[in-house]
Design a protein around this nucleic acid. Structure first.
Lengths: 229, 229
DNA sequence: AAACTGCTTATTGTCAACAGTCTTCAATCG
DNA sequence: CGATTGAAGACTGTTGACAATAAGCAGTTT
């Protein structure tokens, strides 16, 4: 029997209900519908998704493990808030991973993938021209998402995404979307060029530095005089 | 009112039941009582811990998120098995993190912590002398655990532990405890010495190389001719 | 004999209800 | 007037039961 369209049906059949709900709640958080620090009401979510509290609780437990929410006994689960200090810790790890990503991508990216990266950078240039901050921001996220994917290491992707989500949780406090065009696209171009040249060491170095700059921008945006760890 | 003895009581009061169960099941897996690939029966666990299936399911969902188990819809959850290829991926990330750990520990470790590290290395020497493989192995784990702790970055610790657990899951297949004394304690001594000298670059380099050697030992023990990524 | 069909049983997925805890707020007391 | 106490309400933690699915087995058919 021929497999035809793997749509919603297949999704519901293979993935369990809690897994689906988990993804849904994650979007609610990352999309800002559930604010930082806010308490999450299980019953509300249950009725919202048309199910009982059981699956909701399972999903929340998984989200707790991925540090998107925190749980206080008998008081409920809260959308996690990430302090500057913790964001700093995350960046420390992220810098190391970004270097690895740069190396691996330079070694492994296919010609097709390289073209995709170049396309995104071009799009970002256009967004900059149009002063379209929103597009730029989402393209930027996509760019880094592609990079870690093209590194071809599932565990690395997983670790990196986990970290990135934590950072997102920090960025969302107040200044949604971050400091505009502060992210220079020239950095992206240099990275892609190093990848195109198949120079792992340089690509790694540049991507790490990019993360370092990003951290600096965060500090600036947060307007703090913190030690910077 | 003065706080006195924070014992079991406080543990049960602050930590939720699912969290406790999660830790318990994790020990069951890492301790080998639940074999790799084995299916986990919810009802059995529930009666074993004297509770209903609800908390068990929540714990399993958290363990799934940390990749210690995998779940198949309507079939149950299974203790995850880690292939050589995946272990390789993990090592790739671990090498990067180990370098970071070495750097940070060299920068931040207190004199007291440095003494503790030296003590463990000494203990390992003694274990080697007595051909006490078991002790050596557990001391080795302790050594690396201390290192990541002393790096003073909670997120780093978290990421690292997650990775390490996955590796444990691989090691457990067959050759429990790994290749005996293959791990040379001289490597440990060099690392500690770099830390004592407050030389972050060298400590990072050595700790990374230690991970590389460890990966090579894994391949040798697995007796494979795999590409080694 | 091999393959297919339908039952039986064990186990997971989900639910609704109950018990326990925290929060709030008003009433009471010093 | 401020602090304390007690009750009411809302919500979480946990349970036991029910529905649905999958696996194994026997019986039948070709």
């Amino acid at each position: 029997m021929p497999q035809i369209a793997p749509t919603v049906l297949q999704l519901v059949q293979s993935n369990s209900l809690p897994a689906l709900v988990q993804a849904e709640i994650e979007q609610l958080i990352l999309g800002g519908e559930l604010a930082i620090g806010q308490r999450i009401n299980e019953s509300d979510l249950a009725s919202r998704f048309g199910m009982s509290r059981g699956p909701i609780r399972e999903a929340l437990r998984a989200l707790e493990e991925s540090r998107l929410v925190r749980s206080e006994k008998n008081r409920g689960v809260f959308v996690r808030e990430v302090s500057v200090a913790e964001a700093d810790e995350i960046y420390d790890v992220r810098e190391a991973l970004d270097q690895l990503i740069g190396q691996r991508v330079a070694e492994r990216a296919s010609a097709e993938q390289l073209r995709e990266l170049e396309a995104v950078v071009t799009d970002m240039d256009q967004a900059t021209g149009k002063q379209d901050i929103k597009s730029y921001h989402s393209l930027n996220l996509k760019f880094h998402d592609m990079l870690v994917d093209f590194a071809g290491n599932a565990r690395l992707t997983e670790s990196y995404r986990l970290l990135t989500k934590g950072l997102l949780l920090f960025r969302l406090r107040g200044l949604r979307g971050g400091g505009g065009f502060a992210v220079s696209n020239t950095e992206h171009k240099a990275i892609v060029s190093a990848i195109a040249a198949r120079d792992p060491a340089r690509a790694g170095r540049l991507l790490r530095r990019h993360a370092v700059e990003s951290r600096a921008r965060m500090h600036k945006a947060a307007g703090d005089g913190s030690n910077g760890v």
